[in-house]
Computed example of a mutant assay.
Amino acid sequence: MIDLRRLHMFRMVHQQGTVTAAAEALCLTPSAVSHHMRELARELKVPILEPQGRGIRLTPAGRLLIGHADALLARWEEAQAELESYRAGLAGPLRIAGFTTAISGLIAPTAGRLRHSHPDLLVQVRECDTAESLDLLVAGEVDLAVVEPIEGGPQPADARLEQSPLLEEPYFLLVPADHPLAREVSIRLEDAADEDWIVADPGACDHSQRVRVLCAAAGFSPRIVHAAAHWLAVWALVGNGLGVSLIPRLAEGPAGQAVVRVPVSRENMMTRRVLTCVRRGSRQNPLIDLGIRVLQEVVRDHQAMGG
């Protein structure tokens, strides 16, 4: 019999590229992972890994195995989901990961609602960028991730993960409250061509690149003067009259900051897609299904309030 835990480790070694990196992701020692890989190869009676420089690569047999491993582990997730439906109550834990603005605008309200509606359900929230969220999901460290599409991220047909659209939110132009554009109902992006710009890189998705691409489409190159690591810093810089920025709807700043969010006209409008992501086969787990349904309720309420 093949140990599914070893198949999971094998998939992590393939994903991470080295035994050491896989061991770190799995919270194990490299020697333990190496032992399990040797045992898996012994059970299968074929070599599955071979050295490649400082890393490793799959042998032809290993490449054959990885496809079956994805399918077997997905079926195991399905089995766990069905078994969970027979268990009484919803005790958890439900572990949710997401990037900063997803937590403040979506995940935190979801966790609050679940705490109120299901007092016995333990919800654990973890803030991290999309790339780390996906790694944690594959490693089994979280159950549900709220993510953005990223370069090099999983494709829709990825055998390990299942993604679903959650929200498509527009970007607004953030300007100081006393700025002439603050009085406009909506603006064209080229109206801000002569402004100093502020950009942020709040995670795996490059806000600076997004600003440059959108401004280029509007016919100008933005004069980027300030860069910040977090939206709160962008908010403060704009509020103190140091420039303008594009921000997604979910981004929020400190109360009382003298800024205005101005809608961008449809000809320039840029949106950010937000997705839910789970391990393939686990979507029907009652806990995960509940978490996604409440996330969707939060999105609907947010949109109904014009937020």
Rank of each mutant, 00 (worst) to 15 (best):
D206I: 05
A193K: 10
R188Y: 02
V185I: 15
S208W: 03
A200P: 04
A216Y: 02
W235R: 03
I187E: 02
V211A: 03
W231A: 13
I224V: 13
A216K: 05
G203W: 03
L189C: 00
A192M: 13
V199H: 09
A233D: 13
A229E: 05
D196C: 08
S208Q: 12
S221Y: 03
L232K: 02
P222H: 00
A233R: 08
A233Q: 12
V213W: 01
G219N: 04
C215V: 03
A217H: 13
A217L: 14
C205Y: 15
H230F: 04
W231M: 15
C215H: 12
P222L: 04
V234R: 01
D194T: 06
A200V: 12
A227P: 11
V211H: 10
H226T: 07
G219R: 04
H207F: 06
A233S: 05
V185E: 13
W197S: 02
R212M: 14
V185S: 14
W235Y: 15
Q209G: 12
W235V: 07
H226P: 02
R223Q: 12
D191P: 06
C205S: 12
A236C: 08
W197A: 06
L214W: 01
A229R: 07
R188V: 10
I187Y: 05
D201C: 11
I187H: 03
E190S: 15
L214D: 11
V234N: 09
F220I: 00
V211Y: 09
C205R: 15
D194N: 15
